[in-house]
Each structure stands twice: as structure tokens, then as C-alpha cells.
């Protein structure tokens, strides 16, 4: 008795990656309204992350400038300049900064967690909504891995688009606020390298979050029995 994999020979059931990309993009386009809501969660979380990071970068850069005019502005905003005569940060100021940083970290983690939960929830809904479509694809010969690919790609596209928008919003808002507070000094001591680093980091974080959020839903979709496609009562 020959097995089917022998019959299949070298030609395996594979799906060009491009097809999976094509399908997931058209899926997003057709459910644009809902994906916009899901994406807005990512946008908000990443905008917050980016605004914190770029604010840090700007202040760091201003502080490093150590010009008397800027120091005055910083002090007026209640920001510790914290440099003694020798130019080193005082221990007291350092402790205060550390406390501030850990508070920030806590807030950022919380917002990202909420974001992941939001993505997972939206993707689960999307799976439930499409159970018949998934079943049909499995009847037509789709492998589990293809279904997983489909959902992960969809979430990644959604996530990276949202992240890009979030980065832009977060950065622009922070820049606006910094301009109000410190005027053109912001541009004089513009921390371009630091901001680009933050933007890249935020991009990675946002995309990763979307991937993580979509893992469980994608796995659930892949494990769906093809018989589901036969049910007509939906």
C-alpha cells in the first residue's frame, strides 16, 4: 500500500508566502473598520511609549547641553539638573531620577500588557467569526501551518501599521510640548540619534506585541476541525 506522501513525490503542499500575504491583506481591507479599532489600541500604547522615550531623550540632551539658559528653563519645570561643581550627578538627584524611571517602566509595562490583551481579544473574535472560512480552507487542503501564518501575518501587518502611526503621534506630541516648554533650544540640542533609536525600539516592541497577541488565536484557528465548514447553521 502506497502512502500519500510517497504519491505526492517532491511536490509538497506548500503555499507561496506571497499568497498568504495577499490573503491577509485583503482580509484586513475588507474588515477595515474592525481592524482600525484593534489598531487604535496599538497606536495608543505605542504613542505613549514613544512619547515617554522621546521626552527622556530630549530632556537628556538639554541637560547634557549644560547651558545656563536651558538649565534655568529645566529648573523652572522642576527637573533636577543635578550637576554639582565638578559636573557629576549628585547622589540625591540620581536617586530621584531612578525612582522616576521605575515609575515610568511600570506605566509602560501596564499599557503594553493592556495592548496585548486587546490584540488577542480582537484576533480571537476574528477567528470565531471566520470559523467556517478556516474550515473550508482546511477542506481544500490547507495545512495548519498555513492558517497560523495567515493570522500571524494579519496581526503583524495590523500591528506594524499601528506602531508606525503611534510612533509618529507620540513623537509629534512630545515635540510640541517640548517646544512650548523650551522653545527653539529643543532644535539646537536635538537628540536625533537617540530619537531614531527609540523609534526603532518602539517599532520592534509594537510588532512583537502584535505577534504575541495573535499566537493563541492563530493556534486555535489552526486546530479547528474541517468539519466546521459543513455546519450550515450560522
Amino acid at each position: 500500500m502506497t502512502t500519500y506522501s510517497q504519491l505526492a513525490g517532491g511536490r509538497e503542499i506548500s503555499l507561496p508566502f506571497s499568497k498568504a500575504i495577499e490573503i491577509s491583506i485583503s482580509n484586513l481591507r475588507i474588515r477595515f473598520g474592525r481592524s482600525l479599532i484593534t489598531t487604535s489600541g496599538v497606536i495608543l500604547a505605542i504613542a505613549f511609549l514613544m512619547s515617554v522615550w522621546s521626552n527622556n531623550a530630549i530632556i537628556e540632551s538639554l541637560r547634557a547641553a549644560d547651558s545656563s539658559e536651558v538649565n534655568l528653563l529645566l529648573q523652572r519645570k522642576g527637573i533636577e539638573i543635578g550637576l554639582d561643581a565638578s559636573g557629576a550627578v549628585s547622589a540625591e538627584a540620581q536617586a530621584r531620577m531612578d525612582e522616576e524611571a521605575s515609575k515610568q517602566l511600570w506605566l509602560i509595562s501596564l499599557s503594553l500588557l493592556v495592548c496585548v490583551v486587546g490584540i488577542a481579544n480582537a484576533m480571537l473574535m476574528s477567528v470565531t467569526e471566520r470559523f467556517r472560512e478556516i474550515g473550508t480552507m482546511k477542506c481544500l487542503g490547507a495545512l495548519d501551518s498555513f492558517i497560523v501564518k495567515l493570522f500571524l501575518l494579519e496581526s503583524t501587518f495590523q500591528g506594524s501599521a499601528g506602531t508606525a502611526v503611534g510612533i509618529a503621534i507620540g513623537f509629534l506630541l512630545t515635540l510640541l510640548l517640548a517646544l512650548i516648554d523650551y522653545g527653539t533650544h529643543v532644535f539646537t540640542y536635538f537628540p536625533a540619534a537617540g530619537l531614531i533609536r527609540s523609534a526603532i525600539a518602539a517599532m520592534v516592541v509594537g510588532t512583537l506585541l502584535s505577534l504575541i497577541g495573535a499566537m493563541l488565536p492563530a493556534w486555535r484557528a489552526a486546530k479547528m476541525e474541517p468539519v466546521a465548514a459543513m455546519r450550515s447553521d450560522t
Binding site: A8, I23, I30, T136, C139, G141, L143, A229, S232
Partner: peptide, 28 residues
Amino acid sequence: QLDAYELAWLRCRKIGYIFQSFNLIPVM
């Protein structure tokens, strides 16, 4: 006796399915 991979192969090459509610993929 077939594993998941062979079953997918069987469904793909040997069997064609027609459903009561058509089940076309709506985005295609």
C-alpha cells in the same frame, strides 16, 4: 492511518467539497 499532513494532501488532491452554503472565501 494518515497523519495531518497526508490528510491535507488527500483533501487537496483526491476530494473536492461542495457545501450547502457555498463557503466561498469572501475576500477572494
